[in-house]
């Protein structure tokens, strides 16, 4: 198994959620620590850039504030100093029947994702519903960013969304031994981004829902918009209907509310994360609104606010 910052993997090894024979540390790959490019040409972030670096990188903050903001909202300061942006895109899916010690899982009965053969959240289900919990994936996908993977069979560049699968167990369609080497964010080119995160506490907690937005306007109306949510399914969930709805409209309060309503539809929280899942489902709309509002007000002079 590969390990970058280890902030996700090491606690899981301790709880025996993985029992790999070999760990391959990536931290010696100096060239994966660099950020190159600028707002005009687009930025390339090496996979080992830490979350703290990403959150404070001035060119990045300027080019895609929503992405930098998402990186700065991951967990807590010590973890952001060590955790990497590559690791964040590859972060394991979560479930509170799964993110527990071996003894606890043995006591309640092992589940599909590790050591068992049923799903404890949805016992009739043939699949695992563990939750995609990356804070940075939604904005990266909404922006149309790409990742570069390098493996024994060569190098390939894919949209960020491509490797994700709607499966709590096989959540990444990455080939074994393929290393995510970089993330390429497109030129700013008038695109606005924002991220809104829901968690119980002001620090440490994973998102129990997150909404990433990227949109472009022609000065009055939205040219295109993409909305992607975290924490509401086993993969980052896109809301194409909301994006289509927004196209050609002014971002008034009514329009934002209607778009958020559409976006929240595909969100299906289950009872396997913090707080009540019905409440979480209701909050998705609020989060999407917050993200859209923030993207809209990045330049208030241009956009109509109803």
């Amino acid at each position: 198994m590969l390990v970058a910052g280890g902030t996700d993997l090491y606690p899981k090894l301790k709880r025996r959620q993985f029992d790999p024979d070999t760990l391959i540390g990536l931290s010696g790959l100096e060239e994966l620590r660099r950020v190159t490019g600028d707002a005009r040409s687009g930025l390339r972030l090496g996979a080992l850039v830490t979350l703290a670096e990403a959150a404070e990188h001035s060119a990045l903050v300027q080019a895609h504030p929503g992405y930098a903001e998402a990186a700065g909202l991951v967990s807590s300061p010590p973890l952001r100093n060590v955790g990497t942006i590559g690791g964040n895109l590859c972060v394991d899916t979560r479930c509170n029947y799964y993110d527990m010690t071996y003894e606890w899982r043995e006591s309640v009965g092992f589940c599909l994702k590790k050591d068992g053969d049923i799903c404890l959240v949805a016992p009739g289900s043939p699949r695992c519903w563990a939750i995609s919990s990356s804070d940075t994936a939604p904005v990266a996908i909404a922006l149309g960013a790409t990742v570069t993977l390098v493996g024994p069979e060569g190098e390939r560049e894919l949209p960020v969304s491509a490797p994700y699968r709607d499966d709590g167990i096989e959540y990444l369609a990455k080939r074994p031994f393929e290393v995510l080497v970089s993330l390429r964010l497109p030129p700013t080119d008038g695109v606005r981004t924002a991220y809104a995160k829901l968690r119980r506490r002001g620090s440490i907690d994973f998102p129990i829902a997150g909404a990433g937005v990227a949109l472009k306007t022609d000065g009055h109306c939205v040219e295109w918009a993409r909305l992607v949510m975290s924490g509401v399914g086993s993969h980052p969930v896109e809301a194409p209907a909301a994006g289509e709805f927004l196209a050609g409209k002014q971002l008034t309060a009514e329009v934002i509310a209607a778009a958020a309503e559409l976006a929240a539809k595909p969100a299906k929280p289950l009872d396997n994360a913090d707080l009540n899942h019905f409440w979480r489902k209701r909050m998705v709309r609020v989060l999407v609104e917050q993200a859209l509002e923030r993207a809209a007000t990045q330049d208030q002079g241009v956009l109509g606010r109803g």
């Binding site: 527990m100 606890w104 907690d205």
Partner: peptide, 12 residues
């Protein structure tokens, strides 16, 4: 339900 410092919520 959550015998862990991360899941048992206590304020930061």
């Amino acid at each position: 339900k959550w015998p862990s410092m991360l899941e048992y919520k206590s304020p930061t």
